[in-house]
Amino acid sequence: MNGFKDAGHLFRFAGLFVVAFLVFWVVRGFVVPKTFGQYGHYRAAAIAEYAARPVKFAGHQACEACHTDIASTKAGGPHARVNCEACHGALAKHAEDPTSLTPAKPDTAVLCARCHTASAAKPKNFPQVDPAEHSGGAPCQTCHNPHSPVIGATLAAKGGAQ
């Protein structure tokens, strides 16, 4: 043991390092969030927090579960793939509890024109009209059923325009 003679100061210093490291380790255990580093250099719990946020658009599947008549009216027409909430707005509240919120009927003068007003910037194969010229001011639903807008097809789909 002669080699360690007069080496006490080195051991004390090494001990200090060990204690400092342990303190660092314990403090780090407290301040670093539990899930940090689980998948990468970030707090993994943040993913679950995003996933837990509430939904506002119910999704067309939810609408079609109850409104089967409208779904079948839409099915054959050019609006078949226009989702309900594209026109009626976000209605997750209505889907959860239909009595809590009655959706307002959209104003077709605004709604239809938003998509179908003619513009050279729109794709050429998209049906476009000059609303004033096309209807002479009459509301769109006078002739068209918004759920199945081809005239003629409308007659068969009785009561679709709701």
Partner: peptide, 20 residues
């Protein structure tokens, strides 16, 4: 729309897009 796609829904923008 991470809160939607994890529930099997599509995003709000896709849901609302009338032309696909």
């Amino acid at each position: 729309c991470y809160h939607r796609i994890t529930k099997g829904l599509t995003t709000a923008c896709c849901e609302a897009c009338p032309t696909g």
